[in-house]
């Protein structure tokens, strides 16, 4: 233990640049003594490097980097179409007016170098997306968001499949629109959660801050205020607005799953959406039992285990494999009432 501590402090001294030449030699010969020693050195160095990052991690802008790489990728595509390039060149030389109107078209409509990009959140986790206008989006498990690499003047349009929480940068002149299969949400500067899972008959919008306008099937417009939740049922074409505690609906963006007297059936639906498993409550008498729980970044197997501890239920078709190979194939777990 004592020599261990001596070596560890020597490594730390070396890494922080305080070693004398003699100490360096001593360290070096210790490392050369055995494979184990070398590995121990590398592990310590690894931890040291992790605790002393060379750059401020917050200053590394991965979204900007991704956009620049995607731009390069998509530009490479363009050069593979020499006809377009040739046509543009001859237009430039021969027909100046045409060029000017072309420029006008490029500037006023969608310029060619604006590409749509799509971000997908893998099952079991969620991702944070920074949009080009500094708006922030948290994309829940299994959801996808399409947005341009640059917004054009007058509108900021994104397309959502699944669930996302938006924190929209205020800009009344360029309203922000979330387009989903059935519902469009228009906001200027505000925070709200949208659930638009394609398999779900309900599309719901929960307001947290500010004010938004909603349009259902491109008509039927109305406003929504903080603390309100609008749910549109595509089968009945009914839209219901109710008061709610908004945090419950977007707690997932903090890695939480919050249930407050929600029916067990809903609990399993939510868990299933996150992990891409179909969990069906087979006994109707337990389906509506209210359930209170908060799960924090727990795995599927852990959540199912905890639920089983606190509710009289048993699972059929569930095994460890189900938990591990989620994304390969959608599995089905059946829940039955536990017989006494």
């Amino acid at each position: 233990m004592n020599t261990d501590n001596y070596i560890e402090s020597l490594v730390i001294k070396y890494l922080s640049g305080h070693c004398t030449e003699e100490e360096k030699e001593a360290l070096l010969s210790w490392i050369k003594e055995s494979e184990d020693n070398r590995i121990q050195f590398e592990a310590l160095r690894n931890i040291w490097q992790g605790l002393n990052p060379a750059f401020n991690p917050e200053e590394i802008d991965d979204q900007k980097a991704l956009n620049s790489v995607l731009n390069k990728i998509n530009k490479l595509h363009w050069t593979q179409h020499p006809v377009v390039v040739y046509w543009q060149r001859s237009a430039a030389i021969l027909l100046l007016p045409l060029l000017l109107s072309l420029i006008y078209l490029l500037v006023s409509k969608e310029p060619e170098n604006i590409t749509q990009q799509e971000v997908f959140a893998p099952y079991g986790t969620f991702v944070e997306v920074n949009l080009p206008d500094n708006s922030k989006v948290w994309l829940n498990a299994g959801s996808s968001l399409k947005y341009p690499t640059r917004f054009t003047k007058g509108s900021r349009k994104v397309t959502l499949q699944g669930e996302a929480f938006f924190e929209v940068e205020s800009d009344p002149e360029n309203p922000f629109t979330v387009h989903t299969a059935r519902v469009d949400v228009r906001a200027t500067g505000t925070a709200f959660n949208v659930e638009a899972y394609p398999k779900d008959s309900m599309t719901s919008v929960t307001m947290v801050k500010g004010r938004i306008g909603m349009a259902i099937n491109q008509q039927k417009r109305f406003d929504l205020f903080p603390g309100e939740r609008a749910s549109f049922n595509k089968n009945t074409l009914q839209c219901k607005i109710e008061k709610t505690d908004p945090y419950k609906w977007y707690a997932w963006k903090d890695g939480l799953m919050v249930f407050r007297d929600d029916p067990l059936e809903y609990v399993f639906k939510r868990v299933g959406q996150t992990f891409n498993v179909e969990i069906v409550v087979m006994d109707k008498e337990i389906a509506n039992q209210p359930y209170r729980a908060t799960f924090k970044q727990e795995s599927l197997s852990e959540i199912l285990r905890l639920l089983q501890l606190s509710a009289p239920i048993r699972y059929v078709n569930y095994n460890q494999e189900t938990a591990n190979e989620l994304a390969l194939k959608r599995r089905k777990v059946e829940v039955y009432k536990l017989k006494k």
Binding site: D62, A65, L70, I73, E118, V119, F120, V127
Partner: peptide, 19 residues
């Protein structure tokens, strides 16, 4: 490209720090 973007955002920052 979506899969590419997922890999990119998962590893980019850590790779830069490793560099």
């Amino acid at each position: 490209q979506t899969a590419f973007s997922s890999i990119f955002t998962h590893y980019y920052r850590d790779m830069v720090l490793f560099g």
